[in-house]
Every structure is written in C-alpha cells, then in structure tokens.
Nucleic acid binder design. Structure first.
Lengths: 201, 201
DNA sequence: CGTCGATGTATCGGCGCGATATGGTGGGAC
DNA sequence: GTCCCACCATATCGCGCCGATACATCGACG
C-alpha cells in the first residue's frame, strides 16, 4: 500500500522522507496516517528493489533552491524507470483488494493517474464492499433488535448511517465516471441507467 | 485489542474460536473485522498467559446442548479469575490510546461493563481526536482549495462530512452520559448546554 | 460414491503501528 | 549569552493483525 503511495508521490516530484509523509497526510486527509515506522523501511525496501533511487546530495545541493542547507542527512529520493513501470502496474492491476478502507483512500488519491476502466472497477468493488457491510448492519439491527445494549446499538446506528452515505457518494462518483465514459465512447453505452450489479448480492 | 474483545466476550459465555469471531462480527457490526490469523494466535497467547482456559472437552460434551458432537478439535475456552481481573484492568485503564478508529469501536462495544468516568474519558478523547481530523480536513480544503484534483477533493469532502457527523453523534452520547452523571450528582452541573470544549480548536 | 460447501482449527510471511533513540536548527525565555 | 524547547529528519525494534493457505470433518446433493 505504502509502495503505491510513495511511488505515486515520487512520480510527481523528488522528496525526502519527512516531506513525503507530510504530503501523504495532506493527500489522504488523515484518513490514512502512515507512521515513521512504515515510511522509512518502505523507502529502504523500494530503494533496494531499484524502484526509487537516492539522488546525489551534492548535485542536489548545487541545483537546490536553498544553496547552503546542511541540515543533516536529508536523503532525497526520486523514482526510477522501473519504479514508473511498477507504479503503472500497481495502478492497473488494482483488483478487489483495493476495496478495503485502507487501500481505497490511497487508490482514490491517485485516481487521476489511474486508467478509466480500473477506476470503475475500484469504485464498483468498493461500493459492493460497503453495501455488504451496510446490509450486515441492517440485518443485525433488525434481527438482534432490542436485546443488545444501548452503546452497541448506537455503534450500529452510526455505522449504518455512514455506510449508507458512502454508498450514495459512490453512486455519484460512478455516475460521473460513467458519463465520462459515455462521452468518450458513445457507441457502446450501457442500457442500464442504474447500477448493473449482478443479482448475486 | 483482541485481548479486550476476547476477554469481554468470554466473560459473558464460554465459546470456541469460530463462534467467538462470529459474535465479534455481530457486536462490532463489521466495523472491525478480525481475521482467523488474529483470533487463534490471540487465543493461544491468552491461554498461555492464564487469562483463559480450555474447558475439558469431555465435561463439555457431557453438559453440552448437543450430546454427541465429535466434529474435530472444537476447543471451548472460558475466562479465568485472572482473566476477569485483566478485563477490569483493560476496561479501567483505557486512556487516550482507546481513541483511534480500531480501538474505539471495541471499547464502545463493551461500554456497559465500563466504569462511568472511563466512559466519559474515552468519549471525550475520541471526540478530540475526530475534531482534530476534522479541523485538519477543513484547513486542507480551504488552503489547498482548487489546485488539488477532483478525486482527492471528493475524498476530503466525504471525510469532512463523516467527521462532522461523528462529532455531533459523540456530543449526543456525551450529553447523555453527562445527564446520567448529573442525575447521580446533581450539585455540580455545568452552565453550558452546548459542548464546553476549550477555545484551542 | 464423489465432491462441494460449511464448520472448525491452525500456521506463515509480512506490512504497518507505536514507542523510542539520535541529533541538527532556530527561536524565545531569562 | 546561553539554556531549553519545539521542530525537522532519519532510523530501528517488537509485535499485533491481516490475507492466504492448508487441513480435517460432516451433511447434502446428484
């Protein structure tokens, strides 16, 4: 997950670890807060894998905005050609595993770089996931009914409300995506204006 | 975290792992879905720590609802005296670490067994946490404004909406708790009908 | 009679968290 | 003038938990 986030961010501009985490927080709106214990090992891992490279500090100091800036180590990383390939791969393969809470936010944050059909797949997968959670919540609330304690019921209530809202929000996003797709390829437009999800759910 | 959940559930009734996870899902409304890879090692850990004990399968078979039920292993666990002490300890100590998304749901699910003042602490800590996230979201949205791409903005929008709702919900819960506390000690009631949060936010 | 799905227990690799250590830098207190 | 604190910046370690996976048993269905 962090692999995607780091690669996606470094694809836009070279950065050092600290700055990278700040950018990450700005992007993800603290929906997903990666810690130092995650980002630095990931940086090492990606560097070892050849997906990112450490920019030479001397050349960086020569061409940097601030000429004399010793600071300390300040390792600046940039994405490599293999890294870009890997990023494209990660963005394109994004299957049903991109639907859980953690992954979805990260994927959405890099949606502008994601192929349109993959966007649809992620969005619909996410909707399916949230709908399942919502239905489970509804079943529990009606079936268990009054015998559960107040706090659990409140927990379910807010959860149900949140999931219902997210489904509506996802529907809006999907409709928007679909209209974009229709505009681009008007010859093969689907018949269903509503969601064409299978009857298995 | 699972330690609290398992102990709390086994305090109500002895169970085997499979049933335990099902109960857990029913309680947490799939807000927090623990996997097999979590619950079984936790069971082992708690058993080794002496907080839970494996009920003798023969006596269980003798007194069980279904007499001849070989199945396979079907290890039924029950909480021990030390386990109950540990549960009380976990419920009582619950400090600021009980405010992140994962922990909060679990704690709330066992609120009826939690001391009133700890309930307040958890609720207010959680509110503070969510308010911080909300404020961060607001700042990002107004400051970064129009230069971020559409999807990230949507992500922030839904995040802001959700956090605002959760704060309102928490305020309701806190007011309810406070009214309970007032009923118990009516002499020291606060002046503010709204939330008496400091001006730091 | 085969096999498919649900029940049930268990392990493994690995990601990411939280705590923690270390030290350079600039600004405010006194 | 110097002392301390907050911020910048990098790094490590243990461990909780996840996802995949394997395996065993039982009932049902064809």
């Amino acid at each position: 997950m962090l692999e995607l986030a780091v690669l996606g961010l470094l694809h836009e501009a070279p950065m050092h670890g600290y700055e990278l985490r700040k950018q990450l927080h700005a992007r993800l709106g603290s929906l997903r807060a990666f810690s130092w214990g995650s980002v630095y090992p990931t940086l090492r891992r990606l560097q070892r894998a050849g997906l990112i490279a450490e920019r030479d500090p001397e050349s960086a100091a020569a061409g940097a905005v601030r000429p004399t800036w010793g600071r300390r180590g300040r390792r600046v990383y940039e994405i490599t050609a293999e890294g870009k390939d890997r990023l494209d791969e990660l963005l394109a393969e994004a299957g049903p595993q991109a639907c859980d809470d953690e992954s979805f936010g990260v994927h959405l944050a890099f949606f502008s770089r994601t192929p349109a059909e993959v966007r649809m797949r992620i969005l619909e997968g996410r909707r399916r996931r949230v709908e399942e959670r919502r239905d489970g919540l509804r079943t529990t609330m009606t079936r268990a009914g009054e015998q559960i304690d107040r706090y659990t019921r409140e927990l379910h209530r807010i959860g149900l409300d949140t999931t219902e809202r997210e489904v509506r929000w996802l529907n809006e996003l999907i409709d928007h995506e679909r209209s974009l797709g229709q505009a681009a390829t008007p010859e093969h437009r689907p018949e269903h204006p509503d969601r064409p999800v299978g009857p298995s759910g």
